[in-house]
Design a protein around this nucleic acid. Structure first.
Lengths: 145, 145
DNA sequence: ATAAGTGCAAATGTTTTGCAGCTAC
DNA sequence: GTAGCTGCAAAACATTTGCACTTAT
């Protein structure tokens, strides 16, 4: 095992500190794992990655932490079909998801035109856009030989 | 109580029949409730509405029915944040959701430009678009006096 | 006749919580 | 010192399922 304090301050941990939350060993580990992740892990997966660094963290703490971080706007919860909630860092920036219907693989993408259009639609309907959630389900186009 | 057979064949029941599923009293009721609904009820709510018509339907059957209907493409499952899955008829057509962040109220909308753009994005990324799921969270713009 | 559907209650899977003991501030 | 965290195990939810019985076709 590796002691949590050996980890530097990840971007997410910084936010945790800024929001006045206590910086504990567990949070340092969980924040680290989340900052490293370039996928969309669920709690079980976060837990698995966390206990590699510090085996005495409990799942309950992982649940409590992601919930708290989500309430504080540090994380975003996603729901891609399966029973479990998945998380990703808010500071990864606004983006959308394209999900391969065959493999379940999730690709992130950005699109300025889309940003603008959604903004416009919200305004037209009388709302200030706070956030959006978009998933495109697609099937990979076969290349012809 | 009112006997289920007193209900006519709702559009959803028709689809049920077309797909070769058996037409039972329970399915007639559940299909009816779904066809009537212009909101996005969860299972508990569907159950509540169903037992008004026929009190001997069980929740398990409602769960089994919405699951089956979803697999057969008759219903779509949605996930607006709360713990429970919500359902709406596929034949309501392709549309998007705008959710009032204050009240939680869900408004449906259509937008051709958006349809086209999403289509284009999927293609650019090498996919045939199967379906999309879009939720805009917004805050109602205050009218000035 | 028989494959499919149902009700009930028990099982499952995910997430939350009460409580007593720690710990960052 | 104390408000805030944590671990553990139990509880709370949402959903699924095994089984024996019923029903649509």
């Amino acid at each position: 095992m590796m002691t949590p304090d050996a980890l530097g301050d990840s971007p997410i941990l910084e936010q945790c500190r800024e929001k006045g939350l206590k910086v504990t060993g567990q949070r340092r580990v969980i924040a680290h794992v989340l900052s490293e992740a370039d996928d969309h892990p669920d709690v079980e997966e976060l837990y698995r990655r966390a206990i590699v660094i510090d085996p005495k963290i409990s799942v309950a703490t992982v649940y409590r932490t992601v919930r708290l971080f989500e309430e504080r706007g540090i994380l975003q919860r996603r729901n891609f079909g399966s029973g479990r909630a998945r998380y990703e860092a808010t500071d990864h920036g606004q983006h959308y998801h394209l999900i391969d219907a065959n493999s379940g693989r999730v690709e992130e993408f950005h699109d300025d035109e889309l940003d603008a259009l959604l903004q416009k639609i919200a305004a037209r309907m009388g709302y200030d856009l706070i956030t959006t959630r978009l998933e495109i389900y697609g099937r990979g186009v076969k290349k012809r030989t």
